[in-house]
């Protein structure tokens, strides 16, 4: 069953530049999808259509059976989005406040908010930092905090826009391990990335965007040999004839 259905969406920016051009795709519940493309290919623009942060000039997006345009708040509850820059999405003055922000916006009772926050902090290994200022966390901890902030709203789909940007090697492994665990728990995962090497070993599907269009869509093993045609770096193992290795090994 598809949790996201995108039908012929086109988006043009205010300055007339084309962002997305007649894109159609379905994402099945529980799938692990990597959305790849060079800078400016339309990855972020497409992700922001998933939960109604941007609206298409043409076409329809259906999330869990409901048109996003009819009920964007429901789409935002279903699809949790983690943005690329952690500094511009953390609003709370403490780790706890930050994670509670989403549930409080949903007007949940205080006891339910507290429980949701504790569970999300526990899942992301941040319980011991709950009174800490987010500004003082390391890059990896801040990324985990943004994920916890989304998890507390109990979404079915987790969308990550360049989740490994500005992270060191341990930070990448830590965040990747938690994303993989969330997928194993049943979440649908969509990751936008231009560097496939870190995540592609875990993906079930690779969608390549180029100039606002879907240039290729299929199993990673089938598409990886030709990704450089779309200005995406091919994982180094393929050049030596090896299979792509997980960064968690």
């Amino acid at each position: 069953m598809n949790i996201i259905e995108i039908k012929n969406i086109t988006h043009r920016f205010a300055n007339g530049r084309s962002g997305l051009n007649n894109i159609s795709m379905d994402i099945a519940r529980g799938q692990f999808v990597v959305l790849a493309g060079a800078n400016g290919s339309g990855k972020t623009t497409l992700l922001r259509h998933f939960n109604g942060l941007m609206t298409p000039q043409q076409g329809v997006i259906i999330v869990d059976g409901v048109n996003v345009a009819d009920d964007p708040v429901r789409a935002r509850r279903t699809i949790g989005m983690v943005f690329q820059d952690t500094d511009t999405q953390i609003v709370g003055e403490t780790v706890y406040d930050e994670v509670a922000f989403g549930p409080e916006n949903l007007c949940w009772p205080r006891s339910v908010v507290n429980k949701a926050v504790q569970t999300a902090l526990d899942q992301m290994g941040l319980v011991h930092l709950s009174d800490q200022s987010p500004h003082l966390l390391s890059g990896g901890e801040r990324r985990r905090l943004t994920i916890a902030g989304i998890l507390a709203m109990n979404p079915s789909v987790l969308v990550f826009d360049e989740p490994f940007a500005n992270l060191d090697y341990p930070g990448v492994r830590d965040v990747l391990r938690r994303i993989v665990a969330l997928h194993q728990e049943g979440h649908t995962i969509v990751i936008a990335a231009h560097d496939l090497e870190k995540v592609i070993a875990h993906a079930q599907r690779l969608i390549i965007l180029s100039k606002g269009c879907v240039a290729a869509d299929g199993a990673p093993n089938e598409l990886l040999p030709s990704v450089e045609d779309f200005d995406i770096r091919r994982p180094i193992e393929l050049s030596f004839g090896h299979a792509v290795q997980s960064w968690l090994n």
């Binding site: 942060l53 922000f101 916006n105 007007c107």
Partner: peptide, 12 residues
């Protein structure tokens, strides 16, 4: 980012 987390008039 706030809009993505359902920020609006009502809160807990």
């Amino acid at each position: 980012a706030m809009e993505a987390r359902c920020y609006g008039q009502g809160r807990t």
